[in-house]
């Protein structure tokens, strides 16, 4: 009764993903140590987003999951972004 349909990810691929993640961490630290002003946060968050994407799609196997699950996960992040934007609109026009 082979019920599990999870895709097997090879060790080599996992090592590659880790190396990219470590490289991105290194970039975040070096970028934030030079002062770019408001850009620093944007860059740090963009890199964090890229890292999160790599972890979600590879380590958490989302790349190989059903479309339904992938949409659900995306929706959580969209929901959070909406809450963030609406909160800031509220603060900006108070």
């Amino acid at each position: 009764m082979a019920n599990n349909t999870t895709h097997t990810i090879e060790y080599k691929t996992l090592v590659k993903i880790l190396l990219i993640l470590l490289f991105l961490t290194f970039i975040t630290i070096s970028v934030t140590s030079i002062h770019l002003g408001a850009l620093t946060v944007t860059v740090a968050l963009l890199i964090a987003g890229a890292k999160a994407y790599l972890v979600l799609s590879n380590f958490m196997h989302l790349k190989y999951e059903s479309l339904l699950l992938r949409i659900l996960v995306a929706m959580v992040f969209v929901l959070f972004a909406l809450i963030l934007v609406i909160t800031f609109i509220d603060y900006a026009f108070r």
Partner: peptide, 10 residues
Amino acid sequence: IFLFPLMYLI
């Protein structure tokens, strides 16, 4: 991944 840059690197 999000906590580290926001807490340590701002």
